[in-house]
Design a protein around this nucleic acid. Sequence first.
RNA 1: GGGCGAUUAGCUCAGCUGGCUAGAGCGCGUCGUUCACACCGACGAGGUCACUGGUUCGAGUCCAGUAUCGCCCACCA
Length: 961
Amino acid sequence: MTASDTFRPAEMAKAYEAQQVEQRLYEWWERLGFFTPKIDPNRKPFALSMPPPNVTGELHMGHAMFVTIEDVIVRWHRMLGEPTLWLPGTDHAGIATQTQVEKLLRSEGMSRQEIGREEFLRRTWEWKAKYGGEITRQLRRLGASCDWSRERFTLDPGLSRAVRAAFKRLYDDALIYRGTYLVNWSPNLQTAVSDLEVEHEERQGNLWYVRYPLEATTDDRPPTAEEGESVVGGRSSVVGEWGSGKWAEGATEWITVATTRPETILGDTAVAVNPEDERYRDLIGRYAVLPAIGRRIPIVADSYVDASFGTGAVKVTPAHDPNDYAIGQRHQLPMINIMNRDATLNDEAGPYAGQDRFEARKNLVADLEKEGLLVKTVPHTMSVGISQRGGEVIEPLLSEQWFVRTKPLAELALAAVKEGRTKIIPERFEKVYYYWLENIEDWCISRQLWWGHRIPVWYTPDGQMIVPGPDDPEPEGATQDPDVLDTWFSSGLWPFSTLGWPDETPDLAYFYPTSVMETGYDILFFWVARMMMLGCYLTGEPPFHTIYLHGLVRDKQGRKMSKSYGNVVNPLEVMDQQGTDALRFTLATSGTPGQDLNLNPERIEAARNFANKIWNITRFVISKLGDWGLTKDQRPKTKDQHGSASLVFGPSSLVDATLADRWILSRYNSLVGEVDRLMRAYNFGEAGRQIQEFLWSEFADWYVEIAKTQLEGPSTGSGQAGAQRQQLTREVLYTVLEGSLRLLHPFMPFVTEEAWQYLTKDQRKTKDEANIEASDPWSLVLGPWSIMVAPYPMANEAALDEAAERDFALVRELIGGIRNVRNEYKVEPARWVAATIASGPRAAMLNEQRALLVRLARVADDRLVIAERLGSKPAQAATLVVGDVEVFLPLAGLIDLEAERARLSKELEQAEGEIARRESKLGNPGFVDKAPAHVIQRERDGLAVAQAAADRLRERLAQLA
RNA sequence: GGGCGAUUAGCUCAGCUGGCUAGAGCGCGUCGUUCACACCGACGAGGUCACUGGUUCGAGUCCAGUAUCGCCCACCA
């Protein structure tokens, strides 16, 4: 027994069994290195970087989606003969991974702080080693034809070096800086996050109206600047203790502010009013006394304040609100931070120190009420910032962080798209991309985490900062910044760091800039825009020429898939049950680019059925090929092309071709052209749908059925001619199926490869397929697309055979019509019926096709009359009219004249409607003047057909009356 | 507050550069054990393409507006 015997069952199973095929084929492809491109300086490469999944991630439909689309693109380009690189990898995913490991530690009763940084990192690497391979194994299950020999991880030494190089360069160019600013703080994660990591949610809250006592003035005038602090004690309106209920006793003047976050009162350093606001004009420059704290805070004028909102007076908390921060800057207000890193209040919060922010809110509101300072509470919906990964309410917090100055980078990224050096598909996302980059804020890149690239900055004891280059040694006697970089900083370098940047490696030289970036639109800003910014700046060119964005996968009702809804469809389960190809085909063909896709399980089942259909078509074709029956010269030949084997069909003469042969070849050629066009336009879904439509509704439903007739013994001809015709039928079956499998391979790689291997088994040079040589591979993976791009040569005729398509359409319509009539008259399926056809000039053609009418419409051959015109028409017969062709079916004993008249009248009505429609169109001078010729011609042809049909129907009705 | 998308058969969706007599799958109805496939085949029913107006010889397709649903962005306390 040879290896090939065990590699694959000798006979094709009755139904396609995905489980039996997928793993074996994938391992085979990978082992033979089919996914590893050869660098050929004479060929333009195609490169695509895989969006690196989180190393600890679990496979979900989003992964299945991107793998499907990228694999379609990549396999197609590989088949086009381009040296194709799809570079895979994983992302260390700072926050996500750290959270996972912390959870694990908690289950062991520990915290990361307890075990310390070093031990924590050791544990995290351990975790990565254990679970990191899981996601890549699952990507393989999806059939991802990426080059695993080039797999990368964002924390690999090489990529870390790239991070260092990028940081150094940006720092030296003053595009990275450090400073104390208000940032988005995630109390659960205890780190700063970027603006993008904050999600906004509408929440029901309150607008609390709180009055602050105004400082009493003995002489009824505002205190002057010179008097300043010195008069504060004596002039205070506050007499009681906070909480006594008498805190504000004696106050006579108030200013009322409205707030949604009362606890921030504790950090107020001013009250602001609009300078134009008459109500408050007199108060500007005076002081209020801050409840609970007793701090004396000025009333300032700032045009930011909207007089029509709330009371028109705004409390100002520069350390805890971005707008207040800006006001604070303008008025040089002190910034008082009242919060700890865990969002409990600090000593600045006076009586509330130590309380959680929301607890403090509750308590403070109660106390304000007790002190008679709470004027009213009004329910208020507002947008609240939520930490994307932590899930809790974000707290704006003042802290020292590292930032990237984004404006100069954004300009480069904008220009690349505006100048068309990079295109975004679908195009509408270009606008979104522009808007974001045009309004970009600086990017906070430091994270108070441990898992990630540590910020490559060292501080000397005397406070000096040292930023060494990537290859410089660590500065001695200095301590490294404890923070790490935002995960997206390293993934922003992904398209070039994975190829060796900053070194000028052969891979970088050959594959960079990459060709296409394919990803979900949800990370357009997070990732794509940042790759554009960093790529343009650091490498001098945009990292890819095309950005293709796909939509999100949702459930059948269009809801987001989430564990809490319980509506998650697990791709692994789907692949187990229906096969990878079924899942892939569904994802690729259910929607349109950039549009969210509602995954319908019924569609997956339909795709599974399609895989089985392909399988069985192949089984049929192989069974009819028999020992092939062609001479060696007539067989499809192998020919070396792009260093790999390919099939080139050696066309024998089409002189013997039947109408059906010509029709299916024409349709096939048309399909090839369409699919090629659609793929180039990134319209993969439509391409896939068209292949399916062709294979099922045309090839299987019609040609395969007709091939059965054509392959039957002498009835298709006699002697030499019959044998030749049969050979040609086999050739056509083979050619169309073989080519269709190629077309479909990017979408359904497993079933097509397995079927193709069976189909072409006899031509394989090496019998031992399992150990086939990579230098002479026999696989659809490398099989050139070119045979399809250059349509099957139709014996020096045009690739498309319009006459054949037209004639075959009539045959199809007649067969369909006869089947319909049989059905309506409840003719037993097995019964042979007689038929008389009056077909005018098409009689000769139809006569040639009579075998098809016999077989497919079950018309008795000896009772089938086809004539140009008839002397007399049978009275007791059902009538069928297709254009000027009349079919009479004398169904003895079944004909109900009344029903027949009704049926024909209805058809006549329809025909007359069509005539009227078309006549009015053709009668319209505007139409005849302006419409293109072929449209007018089609209108005229249609009119003629309808008129002929109407005439025949009228005659018949008259006869039956 | 700005921007985008969707609205087509009972359901889930196609319909690309206007020419459509609007398609597919599922579901539904009738029939079928013809040797590739019941994960199948044949036939059929089912739609005023959300609404209003416009451009055009011609609109599901382009434009404007309306409605409903969804998404993104945005500092109104």
